[in-house]
């Protein structure tokens, strides 16, 4: 179902296979610094990517997240209680989750969402509400953890969450912006594509690490981290976390 959206997106906006590969390679590079990552010592090159088998065009093997066993937990409490804990607390600046009215029924809205919404992850309204709740804008985000079930959907999430305009995500990633050291480092533990597929909760835990300064791909002075839930299905969710400092 995802491949149908990405095929249309590629046709409409000129996305190339190499643009999805950049997501896979960037996240594998992050995983190479994370000893907990399933793909920690598994080098991925552009040649390996293009030699991998096709799953559902345009998605190749390395465009799809892993199947892995794992567990994550987060402890949510009041700011007052958090002050007494041994760990450095991270602030939930805003969190939201709901279905979008025109998205339709089921995964991918059964492909009957309005034309302008077809080549999106269906999270743009949710993103607007999230930024409004936090009083922040995409420019305030230092690091992001996008739900990465498939590489191409990360491109669409970059657009839905306002880091580039519709159709410009391929240019955005070609410029190296999502790499560690780039303008917006993403999925710094390797994400569901290269750390482990713990249904995105591992991305939330990595968001907490970034704001505590404990990531293996630490973004210097990270104060705001975006964490997003699964795209292309309604309802979805997202949160903005702050360092609380």
């Amino acid at each position: 179902m995802i491949s149908l959206v990405l095929q249309r997106y590629a046709w409409q906006y000129g996305m190339e296979a190499g643009d999805m590969a950049e997501i896979a390679l960037a996240l594998r590079d992050n995983a190479s610094r994370n000893p907990r990552a399933v793909m920690h010592d598994r080098l991925l090159t552009l040649e390996t990517y293009f030699a991998s088998r096709m799953i559902a065009e345009p998605l190749r093997l390395y465009d799809c997240c892993m199947e892995s066993d794992g567990a994550c937990a987060v402890l949510v409490t009041s700011a007052e209680r958090a002050r007494d804990l041994a760990c450095r607390p991270v602030q939930v600046l805003a969190a939201t989750g709901y279905g979008e009215a025109d998205w339709g029924v089921g995964p991918m809205g059964s492909h009957n969402m309005p034309l302008g919404r077809y080549t999106t992850g269906g999270q743009s309204e949710l993103a607007r509400e999230l930024y409004a709740l936090a009083g922040l804008s995409p420019a305030d985000v230092d690091v992001a953890q996008f739900y990465d079930h498939f590489t191409g959907m990360v491109l669409l999430a970059l657009e839905d969450f306002g880091f580039c305009k519709i159709g410009e995500a391929p240019d955005f990633v070609r410029a190296g912006n999502i790499r560690w050291g780039g303008k917006l480092p993403i999925n710094t533990a390797g994400g569901c594509l290269s750390e482990a597929y713990v249904h995105g909760l591992n991305n939330l835990v990595e968001g907490v690490r970034q704001l505590r300064g404990e990531s293996t791909s630490q973004v210097p002075n990270a104060r705001v981290c975006l964490v997003t839930g699964g795209s292309a299905i309604s309802p979805s969710s997202a949160a903005l976390l702050g360092s609380g400092a």
Binding site: S3, Q7, R8, R53, I55, A56, E57, H111
Partner: peptide, 25 residues
């Protein structure tokens, strides 16, 4: 054709013999 894909990986035994098959919107 609004969009299409060719499936190369069988998610179920019943479609293995049909690979690759297309799905079209």
């Amino acid at each position: 054709v609004f969009s299409f894909t060719w499936i190369h990986s069988a998610a179920h035994d019943s479609v293995t013999r049909s690979l690759p098959y297309n799905v079209v919107v």
